[in-house]
Nucleic acid binder design. Structure first.
Lengths: 366, 366
DNA sequence: GTGAAAGCGCTAACAT
DNA sequence: ATGTTAGCGCTTTCAC
C-alpha cells in the first residue's frame, strides 16, 4: 500500500460507498436528498453513514461548489456592547440556515477592512454583512465585485445599488428631541459621531431639524467617534467653557456612559441639572445604575432581517435588485431624563427593567 | 472549449504558471519559499503573480494540506463585556500569524458546544481556544481527539493533560477579601458563579479561606450564572431577608452591575451602606458611573498567551506536553469600596481613569 | 533547479 | 435509479 497523505482517522465518502456497496455518486445524492434515489438504497446508505460516523468534508465541498457557507460580519468595534447583541442575533439566524459567521473588527479603518476582506474572500466567503460601513464602503463593494453578496446594516450605505437593513434613525432622533423640547429644554447638546457614519449623520440632521421647530431652542453639537471617551470629552469641554445646557443627547449608549461619567465627576445631578439620553437601547442602559433614556433599535430584528435578506440574495439567480428595510425605533424613557425619586421603584421589589407604564405613541416609560 | 465550472474571475496557479512560462510546481514553490528556486525564476514568478493579482485559494490549500488556518474561540456569551475584550486580543494575535478566528457562543450548554464544534471540525478548524469550559469539557476533548489542538483559558480545565492560560483567581480573590476585611468589613456577601466554572469556584474558595483568617468575620454566599440578573436577584433576596451585610463581592463586573442596580433601587448608598466589588477589570467598571473596585485580569495578555501557546502546540511535532500559565491579577481600588466624595475628582478636570495614586503591593487606587 | 503526474474529498455531467 | 469519469486549485512525491 502506498503512503497516503489522508488525514488518519478521516472517513470519506468512498468508505461509505464501499460499506454500503454503492457508488460515491449515490452516497452524495443521498446526503443532499438530491434527485431520486430508491428508498431502499437510501436506507442502506444512511445506515452506512451512521455506522461509520461519516461527516462530509465541507472543504472539499467548498472547493467544488464554490460555496463555503461562511459569512463575515464587519463591525467597527466588538467592544461596543451594541455589536455583540447584533452579532448574537446574526449568528443565530445564520446557524439556522447552516451558515457560520466570522466577526471582524474594522476599527473604522479602511486598511483593516481591506485586509480582513482580502483574506476572507480568498479563503472563500459567501457573503458579507457590514454593520459599520463608512469610508470603507467603496473598498467593500469593489473587493466583493458582486453587490448581491453584501447587505449593509446599522449604518446606511451611500450607494443606491446595494441592499440594507437599518433603523429609522431620523425618526428616533426626532422623537427624542421633540420629547426633550416638550419637557421644556431649550439648550440641548448633541454628541455626534464621525461624518462618515450615516446613522450618526441621520440622527444629527433630524436633531437639528427638530430643534428648529421651536424658535427659541438652541442646539450645541460636538463631534465624536462613538467611544466612551468622546462622551467624556464633549461634556467636559462644554461645561468647562461655561455652556449652560439643560439636556444632552449622545449618539449612542456608550457615548452616553462617558457623558454620564463626566457629569457625575463634575458634580452635576442627572436629570436635575442636566438631562441625558442615549441611542441603541443596549442592556446596560436599562440598569438603575444608568437609568438611561434611549432610543431602542430592535437590534435582534435588524440582525435577523439582514441575514435573511443576504441569504435570499445569495440564492436568487435572477437579476439583482437591491432591497432596503427601515425598522422603526422605540423611545425608552427613563430616569436620566424623567427624574423621579429612584427609591420609589423599590416598592415594586426587583426593579422593572423594560416594563411599559404610560406609553405615548411609539414610546415607553420604563 | 468545454464548459468549465470554475469561478469566472478566478486567477489560478495555472494561469500564473502560464504567464510566467514555468510549471505550477515552481509557482507553488515560490509562493511558499519552499526548496531552492533560481532567483531569476523566482522574480519572474513574483512578477506574474503581481501582474495577475493572484491569491492562492486557501480552500484548495486546506484540502490538500489539512490545515485551514482557522481557530475557534468558545465563549459562554459574547454579550458579557469581558469576552469581546478577550476576543479582540485573540483575533489580533492570531491575525499576526495568519490565522482567522471564529467566535462561538456556547451559552454554557453542552449541546451548543457540541453542535458548533462538530460543524467546525468537519468544516476544518486547526485549533480551539475555550474560554468558558464547564460541563462541556469532556465533549470538547473527545470531539477534538488530540489535546494539542486546544488551549483552555479564563476557566481552568479539570483535566490535567491539556494546556491552559488562566488568571490567579485565588490570589485575586484573596487580596480583595483581605482588603475588605482590613477596612473593617465583617459580614461579606459573595455572589458566585455556577459550580462547573472553575474560575468561579477558585474565587469562592479563596474568599471563604480569607474570611476564616478573621474569626469574627462572616461569609454569605449566593449562587449565580455570571449574569447581571443574578446580581440583582442575590442582592434583592439578601436585603429583603434582612441580612445586614456591609460588603458584597460579585463574581464578575456584570454581576456587580446587577448588584449595584439593585442596591441603588433599594435606596442603599455605595459604599456608605454597603461596599461593592467586582472581578475582571472591564472598561465600564472604571467609569465614574460605577467607580467599581474590581480585580483586573489582564485580559489582553491572557488572550495573547493563549494564542501563542496554541500555535506552538499545533506546529510542534514532538510528543505532546501540556503547559499551563497562571497570570497574576491586580486589585483596582475605586469608589465602590473606598468611599470619598465624587466631586473631589472634578478638580482634576477630566477624571482619571486608571491612574495609580497610592498603590499597595499589586494593587492600585484608581 | 525544474516538471509531470497523482491525488486531497467531493460534486456533476454524462452515460447506462 | 445508479455508476463512470472528469475535474475544483492546490501540494507533493518522484523523475529528470
Amino acid at each position: 500500500m502506498s503512503a497516503r497523505r489522508r488525514t488518519p482517522g478521516r472517513v470519506t465518502i468512498v468508505d461509505v460507498a464501499h460499506e454500503a456497496g454503492v457508488s460515491v455518486t449515490t452516497v452524495s445524492r443521498v446526503l443532499r436528498d438530491h434527485a431520486e434515489v430508491h428508498s431502499e438504497t437510501r436506507a442502506t446508505v444512511r445506515a452506512a453513514v451512521d455506522r461509520l460516523g461519516y461527516r462530509p468534508s465541507l472543504i472539499a465541498r467548498a472547493l467544488v461548489s464554490g460555496q463555503t457557507h461562511l459569512l463575515v460580519l464587519l463591525v467597527s468595534d466588538v467592544t461596543n456592547p451594541f455589536y455583540p447583541q447584533l452579532a448574537k442575533s446574526i449568528e443565530h439566524e445564520a446557524a439556522k440556515a447552516g451558515y457560520m459567521v466570522v466577526i471582524c473588527n474594522t476599527e473604522d479603518r479602511v486598511q483593516e477592512t481591506r485586509r480582513s476582506l482580502m483574506w476572507l474572500l480568498h479563503q472563500g466567503v459567501d457573503g458579507v454583512i457590514h454593520a459599520s460601513s463608512g469610508r470603507d464602503e467603496a473598498v467593500v463593494l469593489s473587493l466583493l465585485g458582486d453587490p448581491r453578496r453584501v447587505v449593509f446594516t446599522n449604518r446606511p450605505p451611500k450607494s443606491q445599488s446595494v441592499s440594507y437593513v437599518v433603523s429609522d434613525n431620523a425618526g428616533g432622533a426626532t422623537a427624542l428631541t421633540r420629547h426633550l423640547l416638550a419637557k421644556g429644554h431649550r439648550k440641548i447638546g448633541f454628541i455626534g459621531g464621525p461624518s462618515y457614519a450615516r446613522n450618526a449623520t441621520e440622527r444629527l440632521y433630524a436633531f437639528t431639524q427638530a430643534i428648529r421647530e421651536v424658535p427659541e431652542a438652541q442646539a450645541f453639537v460636538a463631534g465624536g467617534k462613538f467611544s466612551t471617551t468622546c462622551g467624556e470629552q464633549a461634556v467636559t469641554e462644554w461645561l468647562q467653557s461655561g455652556c449652560d445646557l439643560s439636556a444632552i443627547i449622545a449618539i449612542n449608549d456608550s457615548v452616553a456612559l462617558g457623558a454620564m461619567g463626566a457629569l457625575m465627576s463634575l458634580g452635576y445631578d442627572i436629570p436635575g441639572d442636566i438631562a441625558l439620553a442615549g441611542f441603541d437601547g443596549t442592556d446596560f442602559a436599562a440598569s438603575p445604575v444608568m437609568r438611561l433614556t434611549t432610543v431602542d433599535q430592535h437590534v435582534d430584528e435588524m440582525g435577523r432581517r439582514a441575514v435573511k435578506l443576504l441569504l435570499k440574495q445569495l440564492s436568487d439567480p435572477g437579476p439583482f435588485v437591491p432591497l432596503s428595510e427601515v425598522l422603526p425605533c422605540r423611545l425608552l424613557l427613563r430616569g436620566s431624563t424623567e427624574g423621579g425619586a429612584l427609591t420609589s421603584s423599590a416598592k415594586n421589589g426587583p426593579y422593572p427593567l423594560k416594563r411599559p407604564l404610560s406609553a405615548g405613541a411609539g414610546s415607553e416609560r420604563v
